[in-house]
Design a protein around this nucleic acid. Sequence first.
DNA 1: CAGGATCCGTCCGGATACTG
DNA 2: CAGTATCCGGACGGATCCTG
Lengths: 118, 118
Amino acid sequence: MYQRKIPIDYDCGLTVAMEVVGSKWKFCLLDEISKGKKRPRDLVNAVNGITRRVLQNQLRELELHGILGKTVYNETPLRVEYYLTESGESILPLISALDQWGLGFASQLKTILETETV
Amino acid sequence: MYQRKIPIDYDCGLTVAMEVVGSKWKFCLLDEISKGKKRPRDLVNAVNGITRRVLQNQLRELELHGILGKTVYNETPLRVEYYLTESGESILPLISALDQWGLGFASQLKTILETETV
DNA sequence: CAGGATCCGTCCGGATACTG
DNA sequence: CAGTATCCGGACGGATCCTG
């Protein structure tokens, strides 16, 4: 499994938070799953640009960290659904806030990037 | 410069937010700089584990995105100070919230990781 | 369909050296 | 001290195949 070079500083909330959700995809995934249980296939379709492999990794980490839970239905074809744990639910306000902030910042970012890139 | 495989969806706040602060280090850096103008050297010392090269990259991106500004003093040795722009200031509440959440989650994460890894 | 394993190219990041 | 450029090894991620 992934081996950290540096032990986590549990006294630094930001460090802890980054360890758990510090990735480009995780906020988006949690946002999607917050709308209702989701199958991996759904998530690949819903999240713009993520691949199955990366999705798998992100889901595994989120599950390991106790943010997500999953239900496995013994059907064929196999069906698996991911849902937010209590800890997962507790991040939702942050995601919502981040989303709001992003919307407010969008126009400024757009201007900057379009100007700079030429 | 960095070339995105997929164009940014400016209508998705989360995507925008992740584009700007979606990195393991940026929240920590902004948190530090929020305490007062900081020189690169200070930041390397303050942020646990970051190297000069990576710091340089992160600072450049944050500056490009209009989150940070810098002042260059014409002295020798050269002195440069980074500070938060208005946009940068507007993220502070989110960082604070994330920090709080992380502190609350720390004990749980600690338990999980210590149990799992063996 | 979910998810793990493998192969393999790419990119990231550490080390180092150089400039202003 | 700040910042850029170069070299280079290792980690990450895409493609693919296989199993339950």
